[in-house]
Nucleic acid binder design. Structure first.
Length: 569
DNA sequence: TGGCCTTTGAAGGAT
DNA sequence: ATCCTTCAAAGGCCA
């Protein structure tokens, strides 16, 4: 099921936009009808930020008490995505939610859901309704019940909470504590018990709202009973995305473990070395997690990882390696964006090749306003955070070599003129709409600020002005077709990327080298002809885009046009 | 059948 | 501190 086309409403929306990418204008038209909705959105964002900030200030002890409960353990970021999409769908076909300006981030588009907890801590009515609607079995407490758990915590929503790389770094990170330390054996789910014993302290604690985090609001019990909107948790293309296998992850709630969806949150397929062994020796339940993929791997039916796996003994290396669950990397902002938008682009362009689609998406990504990108960065950040909690010991390095060889070295040697990507089907319809395809600014990566301070970005949404002004620099497209122009603007979400020197690409620490990454002359970062830009300006841009367009426009005018490889063909 | 292509971002090893 | 490499998604294409 296509991610965004799932719901009828969504489909309609898609159809509306289908014709050529002038969707922006059309969309905006629709959106203009919901100006108030956007305002709400802004409010929501603001509140979200505020809340995050507040949360970040929460004391450890407090957070401890409110540490996410087992329920949270059941959540997965994959599900979060699902949730977002679902939310979007609901928005569109339910009437209950206003149509979001940006469907890709429904969470933020749903005022109440974005901040389900009212200032007083109560769960907003609509949020409750939504949650219950979405997850019938979800125990959505009333305001009274929530009051205690609300808030602050949501460190899960905190923009300031640094990504937890290791469990020991910050056990309090509330987003979701998947570390087994939270899986005290026999501890009932928060929603099943008013009190939960803190695994560490043994002190009863009350469920925290974070368990109901908008991001991971699913009730374990409800999970399996609700069709997955995106099929993220269900077999895709005939294959189970996250096969259930026995993993080292202990599930405190065996009964709940039955639910594949939920169990996916908790996880499974952890290699013992990744997941600290649980002292209590709980029953190991095979629980699939979106991020965990069996490398073709078929884990043993019995599913139990041999203790040996834990020992990294050279002897079993090979075999154990194969057995080791493949924990995927958390998706980055762009990946999240791609996932959401791919279907849409495909529908609009009739393109099917991912390579081509991705090019378009890449351009669209750059055309996003800071705020829009910020949403994804924030989401990505949360994903990383969740991931790190889920797999405390996991390292991206662990997956090295699991992808078969990716070499292809480069055609780097191929001249830049050699634009012959074997398949670059132009998306004719799309081009016109691609308005501002990448702003140089964005090419720098993203104009977002670092995840560490995402709130800042959100705080000044759609305020690319300063940034853009800085960007108004000549582009040096000629020399580095595939490199992004350098526009030292905002700090990137990731220090790593931002660290790029002025000479290197900007946007991502993409290899300039012959690593082969960009073997084919990629689209230039600023491929959009000025004319196109002007054309795009004819249609009313979204509020978010306006600023960007404006700045882009100015920028482009001051820059030489570059060859648009894609449109060229 | 499986790797390539293509995108950006993140992470971590290497320099 | 930088640079470089790999992987994350996805699906058509090609050897």
């Amino acid at each position: 099921m296509p991610q965004l086309n799932g719901g009828g409403g969504d489909e309609l929306g898609a159809n509306d936009e289908m014709i050529s990418f002038k969707d922006e204008g059309e969309i905006e038209d629709k959106i203009s009808e919901n100006v108030s909705a956007e305002r709400d959105l802004d409010d929501v964002k603001s509140s979200l930020v505020n809340e995050s900030e507040n949360n970040s200030s929460s004391s450890d002890s407090e957070q401890s008490e409110r540490r996410p409960q087992p329920r949270a353990d059941l959540e997965s970021y994959e599900r979060a995505r699902e949730y977002f999409t679902e939310a979007l769908r609901r928005q569109q076909d339910g009437g209950f939610f206003k149509s979001p300006h940006y469907p890709g981030y429904p969470f933020l588009m749903i005022p109440d859901l974005a901040n389900p907890y009212l200032t007083n801590g109560a769960l907003s009515p609509s949020a409750r309704t939504y949650l219950q609607m979405k997850w019938p079995l979800l125990d959505v407490p009333g305001s009274a019940a929530l009051r205690d758990s609300r808030s602050p915590t949501p460190g899960q929503l905190s923009n300031k909470v640094p990504v937890v790389q290791h469990a020991h770094m910050h056990p309090l990170t509330p987003l979701i504590t998947y570390s087994n330390e939270h899986f005290s054996p026999g501890t009932p789910p928060a929603h099943l018990s008013p009190e939960i014993l803190d695994p560490k302290t043994g002190i009863p604690r009350t469920p925290h709202p974070s368990e109901l985090s908008p991001y991971y609001p699913l009730s374990p019990g409800a999970m399996g009973q609700i069709p997955h909107p995106l099929g993220w948790l269900v077999p895709q293309q005939g294959q189970p995305m996250y096969p259930i296998t026995a993993g080292g992850f202990r599930h405190p709630y065996p009964a709940l473990a039955m639910n594949a969806s939920m169990s996916s949150l908790v996880s499974s397929r952890f290699s013992p070395h990744i997941v600290p062994h649980h002292p209590h020796g709980l029953h190991q339940t095979g629980i699939p997690h979106p991020a965990i993929v069996s490398p073709a791997i078929k884990q043993e039916p019995n599913g139990e990882l041999s203790p040996a796996a834990n020992t990294k003994s050279p002897v079993l290396t090979k075999k154990e390696e194969d057995k080791k669950p493949h924990i995927k990397k958390p998706l980055n902002a762009f990946m999240l964006y791609m996932k959401e938008m791919r279907a849409k682009v495909v529908a609009e362009c009739t393109l099917k090749e991912s390579a081509a689609i991705n090019q378009i998406l890449g351009r669209r990504w750059h055309s996003l306003s800071r705020e829009e990108q910020a949403k994804y960065y924030e989401l990505a950040r949360k994903e990383r955070q969740l991931h790190s909690q889920l797999y405390p010991g996991w390292s991206a390095r662990d997956n090295y070599g699991k992808r078969k060889k990716r070499k292809r070295d480069n055609k780097t040697d191929s001249t830049p003129e050699d634009f012959s990507p074997r398949n670059k089907k132009p998306c004719v319809q799309y081009l016109p709409q691609e308005k501002m395809i990448d702003s140089p600014a964005s090419s720098h990566g993203s104009m977002l600020d670092s995840p560490a301070t995402p709130s800042a970005a959100l705080a000044s949404p759609a305020a690319p002005a300063p940034t853009h002004s800085e960007q108004a620099q000549p582009l040096s497209l000629t020399t580095k077709p595939d490199r992004h122009h350098h526009f030292p603007l905002l700090s990137k979400p990731s220090s790593s990327s931002s660290s790029s020197s002025s000479t290197s690409s900007s946007s991502s620490s993409q290899p300039t080298s012959a690593s082969g990454r960009q073997s084919t002359p990629p689209l230039l970062s600023r491929p959009l002809p000025l004319a196109s830009l002007h054309a795009s300006l004819l249609s009313p841009p979204s509020p978010y885009h306006q600023a960007a367009i404006h700045s882009h426009h100015a920028l482009f005018q001051s820059q030489p046009l570059s060859l648009v490889t894609k449109s060229a063909d």
